[in-house]
């Protein structure tokens, strides 16, 4: 299979890759770029562990052909921090203990971040709907909702 050239912007960085066009975005992120924060937990677009942001949207990267992300900005959990400074949602997760095994966490953070960027003050119901596509087997979700609520309240407003 002839490889295709793909120019991809990930976490603010431009990359040039040569890939088989059937390569999924999650495979490019994890295997070609070595960004293993984003995980995979299923084969049926169900679990959300592979959630990244494409432009301002949360998407499941296991259900996106990498070639379709050309010209867009892909953001993963590794891109949330700025020069080592954690994003508000990351700080909130630490304060609330919104993770346990941590496997769903990178994807969960991206769903949360996408929601906050669209709606900086979501209600608890909106928060739950916002992360409905992400399965967490450990936390029971309520600590994640609390973390989002804290950010929504403005507890982590950047100076």
């Amino acid at each position: 299979m002839e490889k295709q050239r793909l120019k991809l912007k990930v976490n603010g960085q431009e990359h040039e890759l040569y890939i088989n066009p059937k390569t999924l975005l999650v495979e490019v992120i994890r295997d070609h770029l070595g960004l293993t924060g984003t995980k995979r937990g299923c084969d049926t677009v169900s679990c959300g562990a592979c959630t990244v942001m494409i432009d301002d949207m949360a998407v499941k990267s296991c259900a996106v052909l990498a070639v379709q992300a050309e010209g867009r900005h892909v953001r993963t959990a590794e891109g949330l921090e700025k020069n080592g400074k954690l994003a508000p949602i990351q700080k909130a997760f630490l304060d609330q203990g919104s993770y346990q095994c941590g496997f769903c966490t990178p994807g969960m953070l991206m769903s949360c971040e996408a929601l906050l960027e669209e709606n900086p003050a979501p209600s608890p119901e909106e928060i739950r709907e916002g992360i409905e596509g992400n399965i967490c087997r450990c936390t029971g979700y309520n600590s994640i909702v609390r973390a989002m609520g804290a950010v929504a309240k403005g507890n982590y407003r950047e100076e």
Binding site: M57, V59, K60, A114, E129, G130, G133
Partner: peptide, 12 residues
């Protein structure tokens, strides 16, 4: 649409 699949699926 609000209750269709998940936000991620609806986005793409």
């Amino acid at each position: 649409e609000k209750k269709l699949a998940s936000i991620q699926v609806r986005n793409w």
